[in-house]
Design a binder for these strands. Structure first.
Lengths: 151, 151
DNA sequence: AAGAAGAACCGAATGACATTCGGCATAATG
DNA sequence: CATTATGCCGAATGTCATTCGGTTCTTCTT
């Protein structure tokens, strides 16, 4: 997906949809200077091209009882490139990234308690090749926001 | 926001909305065994209570040209608790967390190039109290998904 | 440069859905 | 037990999503 195919209107639409995907196409259209129908077609294309993956809701993790957030550096003695499914099978893991450096995979974990976080660490060790973990607990989240379409 | 107030139906609705917030209330209702109107009222309440913060779109960062992802450990010689606004003023920063440990704040950065990432690091140093940064670049993202309402 | 094809747009028509509300049932409270 | 609060259903009504014919603009071909 080459970003060079996104013009100013596409980027404005993405930003507006990130803020409020529930607004009417007529409202969106006014904001970017198009009719509702043309706006609808533009958004349909953004979906078709995979720029907009889906419409979702942003949820307050604490409201779900997920009061503990930690970033875990997972060390391994083996190539972890084929382990995506193993990480995805641990529901507390929100994201997982293969990284360069002393560890191999960085994962973001949300849990209800620190006990549950410990259990996640135990389950991480059960993944083939994992030799160590180093958890960094978040004391406070300043903010979390979506990728900016205007960089 | 006490999570004890979320019943099974609420949690099912959150999960369904996370997957596809564009589906009709009639469809949602069928999935949880309620009428469209009752479902609408349930979701309205989840919004009112701040569980559901907003309806948004999930976007492919690469499609926006944001091909570089890094996690930066920001070290400081001072208390960073009042610096949320300073971090938020750097648009490449997607999230920022106060952490326990040798560094003070962990930030997630998306940029178009490694040069831009370097520029972000320079701007981070300009924040009062910042004494060091340690960037960990993501080579591959296994997955990113929303917090699970069923943990 | 001219013509054809493709892409994007407008605005109206039509189908789908959001929202509201009266009535009923259930749960909670005093 | 009586009263109040909450949640639900289903239908009515207002709003919006979607489509499409026609027009305009852009790109491609000769």
């Amino acid at each position: 997906m080459a970003s060079e195919n996104l013009d100013e209107i596409d980027r404005a639409l993405v930003a507006l949809l990130q803020q409020d995907a529930g607004q009417a196409y007529a409202t969106l259209g006014k904001a970017v200077g198009l009719s509702a129908g043309a706006t609808h077609e533009r958004v349909r294309k953004l979906r078709e091209r995979g720029v907009v993956r889906r419409t979702t809701v942003e949820v307050d993790p604490k409201a779900l009882g997920l009061g503990v957030l930690a970033f875990v550096m997972v060390e391994s003695s083996a190539w972890m490139g084929d382990s995506a499914a193993a990480f995805a099978a641990i529901p507390e893991i929100e994201e997982a990234h293969v990284i360069a450096g002393s560890a191999s995979v960085l994962v973001k974990v949300r849990s209800t308690t620190t006990e549950q976080l410990q259990d996640v660490l135990r389950r991480l060790y059960a993944i083939d090749g994992v030799s160590g973990t180093q958890a960094t607990v978040s004391l406070e989240t300043f903010f979390e926001r979506p990728p900016s379409p205007t960089l």
